[in-house]
Nucleic acid binder design. Structure first.
Length: 808
RNA sequence: GCCCGGGUGGCGAAAUCGGUAGACGCUGGGGGCUUAAACCCCCCUGUCCGAGAGGACGUGUGGGUUCAAAUCCCACCCCGGGCACCA
């Protein structure tokens, strides 16, 4: 036993905190490093899966600090949200009380791991000190026209009884509870993220320290497409409608047009016609279906309106259909249908017997139906013979010259719906007055604090709506009776700016001091789960850009580097409370201590990959720590001084190679191999000590190991550092450097191949030249056997590593 | 369907630029220490052939490029993730 684990680990946890080792302030004389993990929802108990992430973050905090950076690593709580509210419904305990108990428990557990933060900057989104600035931000957005209320069909989760943002609907289901989402028409608040779509897209190109995967997901989510919007008249009427297409070059192949069932023109077109009854029942059926059911239908369905539209390129009349494969939410909610070049249109046309005209010549061997590829235009009058790109720009010019349409850009991303009909969130600071309409709550009346309620149960509207004393308020403009907004904000609003607040967390006068934010921002390393690739990470980028435009933040992007860690898996599933497969750290703390757990979490596999939990692993890293302890302590005072030998120098060289490899591996987030290099050196040192070698370099070897180990297994390395008589605290020591001369090898093993197969290995000087290497290879006795008198066709020498002799 | 990842021993994995495949750890086996056990220490642990020296094979499958391929190219299979009636 190396020491009393509980006692010693607690001792160092106290000292790091009491001596404020990781509390920092702005210091322009040192390079800064802002290290942030996605602040957690306070769900209560940390399991091994969580500890993996915290081990990474803490490693970086300590490592960067030793490298001389002014490191800010703060911690906070994403403490609004449904779990606390659902617990309140069940138990009657106020969500605040529930949440704060959970936070206290999680803090204790973070401390137990030895994770260090600047706790002076702790924040929690449910605290009025925090969410008053949510409200302030909301009003700033409102002033700038970036927050607006409108009646719109929205995603409604029937179980959680609230609306959801598009980003929170996954495969037509609620991201949180998995129930099928339905459409409802509601008056809701939106943030105008679409105004920032182009910048959010463009700046992805500069985020080269982000995983490509996340950038691709954001690109797809933003979904930019270039095309053309033009207007089509309805024959025999004075109405017209716009269509959007990415393939205006195929306009001559339009054989019908389609309106989404929700299209505002639909009513007018069918009213009083013989088609009205059929159309009406089709529309009603479509409206009653959830997005999932619409898709599940498989086959495309639609109904003819009896009307015709005039194709502006050739004045031909095409039938107007209503079909739910056209979505009201994208483009103009109406399309020109070109079955020859669009598979969906092809399917529809085939089913309903509509004419098909090809306007791009498919290759001779083409066997498909609709042809989407490039080729010369046909049946397209003045476009005939042009390739797609040419035809596209020519027809757009033509539309623009005639004033019939224009080139347009379309985005898939929609405005961010932030209203929620739930209690445990930040109240939206708006008032509706019968005289003055929508009126913002004056800034000096913030925060709008939500009152306690008796019933948290969701009933299709916010529980706050039942509290008359909250709802009824004087209009700030006219003083007359008015009503408060009772919806709360999406919790993703809270999390879209907390990393700015950390920079000045205790400011009671302003959301933050821009000077402090400019010192710390951008976040140098952001760490979290990939599940936020298009939710939080897109919202946070949007809000940062808004602050930039407000002149309050210099940075245009919040997170310079993003690291998305893998999940911990057990029994084939992600470790989580709901799956019932969590491994609780308690018994491991008792048996092995925090260091062995941390080291195993680092060692278990590549940090970006999912990893499988194994009980034996902690045993292994604990053994390694025991060995380090023994090597460091058993030999103290027993080492006889002797002159340095070649063996000593070689051990020291290995120690420096370890320093180099561990440093480089941490820098490239290869923590598992960094640990492996420490183990390899420990094996080398142990063998040398056993053989009575490496006496003189022993002290230096241990010193270097402890420095490297300190961000990974901080308790043991601090304790040893102190016991070995170093007067300083290890955490404040400088990260070691390696001596390149020592690291370089004089002699290396050269591989000799015959026809690409390894046949011999010889030690050669590292600076050997090609001719000598070749000569040595050809002189090898073992090689001679393999050459067997055959003709040597070629010798490839890559000194000092390899010589390949080709015989034939 | 489209777009990303990934597939290497009994297991987790390593191989950073095309140059010794399997570092490091786990598991398992053998031995030492011990009255005994635990701890600890030493040796072995990809498959096959061989007493051994050694040899053949081997990174999902099939081809290709190359003196040389886990790594590059083509086709395919499987697993994971994202997007998906987006006009």
């Amino acid at each position: 036993m190396r020491y009393d684990i509980q006692e010693t680990e607690a001792k160092w946890q106290d000292r790091w905190e009491d001596e404020r080792v990781f509390n920092v302030s702005e210091d322009p004389t040192r390079p800064k490093f802002y290290n942030v993990q996605m602040y957690p929802y306070p769900s209560g108990d940390l399991h091994m899966g969580h500890l993996r992430n915290y081990s990474y973050v803490d490693l970086l905090t300590r490592y960067k600090r030793m490298q001389g950076f002014n490191v800010l690593s703060p911690m906070g709580w994403d403490s609004f949200g449904l779990p606390a509210e659902n617990a309140a419904i069940k138990t009657g305990v106020h969500p605040r009380e529930f949440t704060e108990t959970q936070i206290a428990r999680m803090k204790t557990q973070l401390r137990r791991l030895g994770a260090v933060y600047d706790w002076d900057r702790e924040l929690a989104s449910h605290s009025p000190d925090y969410y008053r600035w949510d409200q302030w931000l909301f009003l700033e957005l409102y002033d700038r026209g970036l927050a607006y209320k409108r009646n719109a069909p929205v995603n409604w989760c029937p179980v959680d009884q609230t609306v959801l943002a598009n980003e929170q609907v996954v495969d037509g289901r609620c991201e949180r509870c998995d129930s099928v989402v339905i459409k409802r028409d509601l008056d809701q608040w939106f943030f105008k993220i679409t105004d920032y779509a182009q910048r959010l897209l463009d700046d992805l190109d500069h985020l080269d320290a982000w995983p490509d995967r996340v950038r691709t997901m954001q690109r797809n989510w933003i979904g930019r497409s270039e095309g053309c919007t033009f207007s089509m008249e309805v024959a025999g009427t004075d109405v017209s409608f716009d269509v959007y297409t990415t393939r205006p070059d195929t306009a001559f192949g339009m054989t019908f047009a389609v309106l989404a069932p929700e299209h505002p023109l639909v009513d007018d077109l069918i009213a009083g016609t013989e088609h009205e009854t059929a159309a009406r029942s089709y529309i009603d059926a479509a409206n009653g279906l959830s997005e999932i059911d619409r898709l599940a239908e498989g086959d495309k369905t639609g109904v003819f309106t009896g009307r015709f539209a005039i194709n502006p390129v050739n004045s031909s009349q095409v039938p107007i259909w209503i079909a739910d494969y056209v979505l009201m939410g994208y483009g103009t909610g109406a399309i020109m249908a070109v079955p020859g070049q669009d598979q969906r249109d092809w399917d529809f046309a085939t089913k309903y017997g509509i004419e098909i005209i090809r306007t791009v010549q498919p290759p001779d061997d083409f066997e498909g139906e609709a042809y989407l590829g490039d080729g010369p235009a046909i049946n397209s009058e003045f476009l005939d013979g042009m390739q797609m790109a040419d035809a596209k720009s020519t027809i757009i010019e033509w539309f623009e010259e005639k004033g019939l349409g224009k080139g347009t850009v379309n985005f898939r991303v929609r405005d961010w719906l932030i209203s929620r009909q739930r209690y445990w969130g930040c109240p939206i600071p708006m008032i509706t007055c019968p005289t003055d309409g929508l009126v913002p709550v004056p800034a000096d009346q913030l925060p709008v604090i939500h009152p306690d309620v008796e019933d948290y149960a969701p009933g299709g509207r916010s529980p706050l709506a039942a509290v008359e004393s909250f709802v009824n308020v004087e209009c700030p403009v006219c003083g007359g009776p008015a009503k408060r907004e009772t919806d709360t904000m999406d919790t993703f609003v809270d999390s879209s700016w907390y990393y700015l607040r950390y920079c000045d967390a205790q400011n009671s006068e302003a959301i933050f001091d821009p000077a402090k934010v400019d010192y710390w921002m951008e976040v140098d390393q952001y760490i979290g789960g990939v599940e936020h690739a298009v939710l939080h990470l897109l919202y946070a980028r949007f809000i940062t850009k808004v602050f930039h435009d407000m002149g309050m933040v210099e940075a245009k992007e919040p997170f310079r580097a993003l690291f998305t860690q893998g999940m911990l898996v057990k029994d084939g599933a992600k470790m989580s409370k709901s799956k019932g497969n969590v491994v609780s750290p308690e018994e491991y703390y008792a048996r092995y201590g925090a260091d062995a757990i941390r080291l195993f979490e680092l060692f278990i596999g590549p940090p970006t990959d999912d990893a499988v939990w194994s009980d034996n692993g902690v045993e292994g890293t604990s053994r390694f720590l025991d060995r380090v302890w023994r090597m460091a302590t058993d030999q103290v005072g027993k080492i006889e001084e002797r002159p340095a030998s070649d063996a000593d120098r070689e051990v020291l060289a290995e120690a420096h190679r370890m320093v180099q490899k561990v440093t480089e591996d941490i820098d490239r987030f290869s923590f598992n191999t960094a640990v492996a290099h420490l183990m390899t050196f420990a094996n080398t040192l142990q063998a040398a000590l056993r053989d009575g070698l490496a006496r003189e370099t022993h002290t230096e070897s241990i010193r270097l190991m402890l420095l490297l180990l300190s961000p990974m297994a901080p308790h043991l390395s601090h304790e040893l550092w102190e016991r070995l008589g170093h007067g300083s605290m290890l955490a404040t020591e400088a990260w070691p450097r390696w001596d390149p001369e020592l690291v370089a090898r004089d002699v290396v093993t050269m591989v000799i191949q015959v026809n690409g197969k390894v046949r011999d290995r010889v030690d050669v000087p590292a600076d050997i030249d090609a001719a000598t290497a070749e000569a040595i290879a050809l002189a090898s006795e073992r090689i001679a056997e393999w050459l067997g008198g055959g003709e040597i066709r070629k010798v490839i020498a890559r000194p000092p590593n390899i010589v390949n002799i080709v015989v034939g």
